[in-house]
Design a protein around this nucleic acid. Sequence first.
DNA 1: GTCTATATTTGGATAGAC
DNA 2: GTCTATCCAAATATAGAC
Lengths: 201, 201
Amino acid sequence: MSGKLPVRDRRAERHAATRREILDAAWELVRTDGLASLAMRNLGQRVGMRAQSLYAYFPSKHAIYDAMFADSNRQLLDRLTNLPPSDDPIDRLRRQARRFLDFCIEDPVRYQLLFQRTIPGFEPSAESYAPALDVLDHSRQALRDCGIDESRALDTWTALTAGLAAQQNSNEPGGDRWVRLLDEVIDMFLVRYPPTESRRP
Amino acid sequence: MSGKLPVRDRRAERHAATRREILDAAWELVRTDGLASLAMRNLGQRVGMRAQSLYAYFPSKHAIYDAMFADSNRQLLDRLTNLPPSDDPIDRLRRQARRFLDFCIEDPVRYQLLFQRTIPGFEPSAESYAPALDVLDHSRQALRDCGIDESRALDTWTALTAGLAAQQNSNEPGGDRWVRLLDEVIDMFLVRYPPTESRRP
DNA sequence: GTCTATATTTGGATAGAC
DNA sequence: GTCTATCCAAATATAGAC
């Protein structure tokens, strides 16, 4: 029988910490070189290892992309979950959209990884993708809280926010020419899909 | 003095034809392998040449991307220019948007090349990019013909169409879940930016 | 867990013969 | 204009010593 006394597994902790360190370094690299240019060599160099040693932490480069994808999704979900509470569902809807948009434009590379499937062989694993569905549910719920239930409304809603993010990132990264249209666009949306009084507080 | 008699330069024609052939093959390749996976070797194979021989037609791989980029822009511009005439400017606006959207979704790889700057070292040359500005002018003019002049209106307009295209391509390529929202979205837009009677026929 | 060594593949590009 | 022959560089990944 193997002794199971130690509560903390220092070994595992160390391993996890190094994994984290590698991922952070990967983020730095892709932000300067571009998402597709991530190379094991450079990554190893950045954390003070040989490229080969990285395989003790990730079985492949795609696994690194996958972990980064999961990172991003978790961050976004956190951002949407920790909204300051508000009694006004429309206010919540607006804030949520604002947060989403800020998230999209504050790191174009992360945006590319999450929303533009552009890396040759990479597809996120089911586990890494799961939070994305929660994110969508957040929007669905926020709309529902405003009494907006149509499925067309949800699709339109995502298209509006996605469109502002896409235009901002591809035409004026770092700027706010499209971002600042958000409130106006939401007004437009709310005229077409008028909220009802069916709030649920 | 060099004789200049022959009106047609058969040599140049042949060269241009082969260039065209190479570009067509490149399109086929990227549609199956992905935009970033275009390789000179495969491309040569596809047209029955060694990779090295391609350099007689294009000075680099980026030059091929650039020509493909120019291709796409010209196609789009053609599509928008050859709209059936209509006396109703709003009708024209709608048709134009429809064409644009169809163009975006009928070939996701072309969409990626044109609108998502995603290939590591590639930036289109000024010449290849020029038609893109004409495309934007088309939208500007179509809106103006409806009496819609605000610059915010133009930015919102491009965000709406871009958003529908982005969602359609990334969430349901080949489908029409977002595309079919177009008319409704345009209605929404026209409520916020009401056309005036200042048509110019 | 990290290293050296190496396998393997791939890919862009040039030189020079024909 | 196309080929052969190469070069060079970069990249992913594995094996096995320490």
